[in-house]
Amino acid sequence: MSIDTLPAATAVFDAETDAPAEPDERSGGREPLTKRGRVQLVFAHIAVYVAAAIFVSPIVYAFFSALKPNSEMFSMPPTLVGSEVRWSNFADVFAYGPFLTYIGNSFFVSITGTLVVLAVSTTAGYAFGRLRWKGRDAVFVIFLATLMVPQEVLVIPMFQVMQWFGWVDTYQSLILPFAFTAFGTFLMRQFFRGIPFELEEAARVDGAGPIRSFLQIILPLAKSAVAVLSVFTFLSFWNSYLWPLIVTVDYATHGTLPVGLASFSGLQGTRWDLQMAAAIISMIPTTVLVIVLQKHLVKGIAMAGLGGR
């Protein structure tokens, strides 16, 4: 077997891992519907769409509220659209708080954090999943054990450690402490183990060391796992609240979106129009992300949520 045969094997492998993605049309059965079945299906559609409408109504109402004058926020009877449509509320949010800074900080922290997690998890996952070394399994068990420790146990001593380092109110304190959790390593290890051994063996026989084999063979095969890990890591950094709340002092310089939004709400408590506009603005990036990645959503959850089972 030479390295030339790899692309074909890769394609097969990719097809295999992508298989459980959306067998949408198959499971659930497709026997022809009886008349009664068709009526039931119509009712099922009505029920599901009504439920969905109720479900999104808070966000829709918040959006329209963000366009009202503040004095009409709590008018009786309630209205969806106010006497005028004030798009300026969205612009005003940026005048009342350093929202651009919050958004910029959130992007910077989330992207950098994700990159660190990816670098650390893929390399460690490779060592645990595909290299043979003494004590590997024992060390891996310790890794897994740390997954059980809840964030609340960690944040208090972590704050103390940050004080000792002089890192309170810095970017590194927002990024590094939670970039080394064992979850990513676990996910990558599980995925790497599923890659057929022959793929790597061929390259190894041709004289490639682990570094080359990792970068050129294993990593390209793990695109879907890397994608899943990136999205989930990005989201958890983006939405993280407790730790930034603890370790950030000056929101105007290092505040991320969640703590910024919370403090904005504290300061502008009576300006519900601005609070709603700010809330809607902060919902946009992750909502777009989910809409763009919707095809991979179920597969991603199956992989990350169930620990690569």
Binding site: A52, Y241, L257, V259, M283, T286, V290
Partner: peptide
């Protein structure tokens, strides 16, 4: 519909 029900999971809890 799935995307729709999933949106509040990924939007910031504070919002």
């Amino acid at each position: 519909l799935r995307v729709l029900f999933f949106i509040p999971v990924v939007t910031p809890m504070v919002a």
